[in-house]
Every structure is written in C-alpha cells, then in structure tokens.
Design a protein around this nucleic acid. Structure first.
Lengths: 169, 169
DNA sequence: CATATCTCAGATATACTGATATTT
DNA sequence: CAAATATCAGTATATCTGAGATAT
C-alpha cells in the first residue's frame, strides 16, 4: 500500500514547518493530521483484507451491527443513526448487501413506513469469516499493542464526546 | 453534522457485544473503530469550515505543503508521495486548484518529464485565510486539549510507523 | 397537516486500473 | 530499451442535496 516509507515522520515535519511560520494550534494540527493519515492507512488495510469477500469496511460494519442485534434485524434508519451515515448511503449499502444475498429487506411489523434489514445465513457466515481475517491481521494495525490500543480508544473517546458523538456514558 | 448525539458510546457498546460473542482482539477493534469514527467527525468539520473557501481538506493539504516548500513549488510526484495519494488524484487536485487560480503548472527546470505546481499569490492568501479559520475552531476538535492532542499524536505515530508510513525519526 | 421513513436522481470527491505520451 | 513522470479514460465507492412516495 505505501509506495515506500518516507525517511522521516511527515506529521512531525509538518509541525516543525507550521510552528516555524508562527501558525497557532500546532498540537491540534498534528493530532488531526495524524488521525487523517492513520485513517488512510487503516481503511486501505481493512479494505484490502475484505475485498476478497466482496465487502468494504462500511458494509462490514452494517453486518456486524445486525449480528449484535437481538433478532439479526434492524430498521434502516437505526443503522444510519448508529453508524453516522446518511439515509441514502444506508439504502445503497443495503442494496449491495441484498444483491449479494447477505441481508434481506422485510416490512417493519408495526411501522408501515420503516423497512427492516435482516441477516441471512450467508450473511452470518460471511461476517464470521471477515471477522476471522480482520482479527488475524489485527485490522492492519500490527504496530498497535493492547496497551496502545487502549490509550488510543480512550483519548478518541474524549474527542468524540467533545464533538457531540454521544453523551456521557 | 451529528443528527443527535447517541445516548451511549457506540464504540464501548460495540466492544461489549464483540466480547460477549467471544470474538478476539476487542481492544484493537475498538481502537480501529474509534479512528474511523473520529475521522468521520473531523473530516466533516474541516470540510464544513473550508467549503466557503472552495477548498477540501485534500486540496488544503496540497496548498500547505507548497507553502512549506522553499520556492512555493513542488513536482506533482513529490506531492503524491508526501500526502500518500495516487498520481491520478494529484493530477485532479492540481487541476482544480489551477482552475481556481491558486496554483499554476510550470515545466520542471531540469527534468523534462516532471511538472511543478507553484503557489500563486491568490493561493498564499487563500491558505492563510483557511488556516485562520481552522485554527480558530481547533479543526473541529474542540474537546481535545493540548495534552490530549499530544498523547494522540504520539500513539498514532507508533501506529503509523508500525504500518510502514515512515522509518525511525 | 406536519413529521418520519425510505428511495431515487443528480452532483461531487476520491481512488484505482490500465493505457499512452514524453523524457531520462 | 527499461524506468520514471504525468495525463487521461473508465470504473467504483461514498457522500450529500433535493425531491417524491408512503405511512404515522
């Protein structure tokens, strides 16, 4: 995925240049740039692992969320709220998963406006296989040990909370 | 941007469900999911701030990189290596910046294969304005104080280094 | 009637592949 | 001639907006 590793940390270098010009908030710039770049690395690794299973991270997340639901089924609207994706994106993801036979659409039993997405047996098998492959490669984050993962989750929880992702747990 | 904050931390909830099913590597899953979600939040905030200036984060990064270069000009290939974006994406970004009068293309003085992208005066003004707006809103990461930003940068540096983003600094 | 849910059409952004022209 | 640089065409994914259909 990386053409070739850079011979220096591009984030540290950016911060040096940033502050040499007297620009403010260099700490935050470096942190935000780090998140952007880490995302780039992780999404590429995860999608590379999932591609042979005809999944993307976005569609894998939908399958996992359905796996965690009581009946293996959720209204499309709830999927969007939970994964923070637009209703049109949910429609698109479910279209694709349904075409691949991994979920099916069902009418909501009590609310005629809503549509349920339900895992099929093939969907359960696929998400199990995908999870095995992802975990066996530590989601492409080989350099992240459990302690570092915990620190990362913790500081990003503060960031997300401060940005209104969720309210106090 | 957020429809409404969730009444619970979706990452912590996912981890509970993950481990309740006996799936391994829950620490790493939570960390990777946190990065994905933090990215979603930050990219939305940054692009919202930059949109009135006809910039995206990707194009802003190009302008900043040019600002940091000695002559305000770099070959397209070097931009791609540094920002980890595909050559075709660099061509596209420079097309757009050039159409907006923020950069111009110049022939490379010594290598006839290469093309330089050079900042224009308008480009320098635009990146200054964009930087003011981004820093005044702390890049949309209001909940991240300097200490947390430093910890975040540090742990993500380990992740990126382990993934081959760069070699020891 | 206002609101909620989903779908669809159209537009944009980014990325990747593969092919091509030019130069080193 | 092989490798490097940039561009272009075509394809894929994901996003958002705005409009519309159906149901509460």
């Amino acid at each position: 995925m990386p053409d070739a590793p850079l011979p220096f940390d591009p984030v540290a270098e950016a911060r040096r240049n940033w502050e040499a010009r007297g620009w403010p908030e260099g700490e935050v710039m470096a942190a935000v740039t780090s998140v952007m770049r880490a995302h780039q690395i992780l999404i590429a690794a995860v999608n590379r692992i999932l591609a042979p299973l005809d999944l993307t991270f976005a569609r894998y997340e939908v399958l996992v969320l359905l796996t965690f639901s009581r009946r293996g089924a959720l209204p499309l609207g709830r999927i969007g709220q939970r994964l923070q994706v637009h209703a049109a994106s949910v429609t698109n993801a479910i279209d694709r998963l349904e075409a691949d036979g991994l979920v099916r659409r069902l009418p909501h039993p009590t609310d005629g406006r809503a549509v349920l997405a339900e895992l099929t047996d093939a969907g359960r098998e696929r998400v199990t296989e995908a999870t095995q492959r992802l975990t066996s490669e530590r989601f492409g984050a080989a350099g992240l040990d459990d302690s570092a993962a915990q620190r990362l989750t913790s500081v990003l929880s503060d960031l997300r909370s401060g940005a209104g992702d969720f309210v106090a747990d």
